[in-house]
């Protein structure tokens, strides 16, 4: 499988990342090397094998859905990059 500019752009768009110039060349080379490496998995015969998705054999138990106010509004806003007294502030989403 060959990693080209088009693939890098497509994956970067999905991952919400941006690669330009030297960085793009570097990620292209790295992805190619890593892909060649993980392509080894093709050598394993997995005919009839189910994917392993959950690591526990236990039935996961749900806890009671009780309201528990652990964090205040003030605390929730504490780590915001931008805020006013009540809300998170974000750059304008809709253009005129």
């Amino acid at each position: 499988m060959e990693v080209n500019d088009e693939l890098v752009d497509k994956i970067a768009a999905l991952a919400k990342l941006e690669f330009k110039g030297e960085e793009k060349e570097a990620i292209k080379g790295d992805m190619q090397r890593i892909l060649n490496f993980i392509d080894k998995l093709g050598e394993v015969d997995t005919e009839g094998v189910e994917p392993l998705v959950y690591m526990t054999d236990e039935t996961l138990k749900l806890r009671a859905d009780e309201v528990d106010q652990e964090i205040s509004q003030d605390e929730a806003l504490r780590n915001a990059p931008d805020k006013d007294s009540d809300y998170f502030k974000v750059p304008k989403v809709l253009k005129k």
Binding site: I11, M31, I38, L41, T46, V49, L52
Partner: peptide, 21 residues
């Protein structure tokens, strides 16, 4: 990037699902 690639349409079965097997 690599994680997004192996989860993306067209490669999911060949890489992600394969690795789970």
């Amino acid at each position: 990037m690599l994680g997004t690639f192996v989860l993306s349409a067209g490669y999911y079965d060949a890489y992600y699902s394969k690795a789970q097997k």
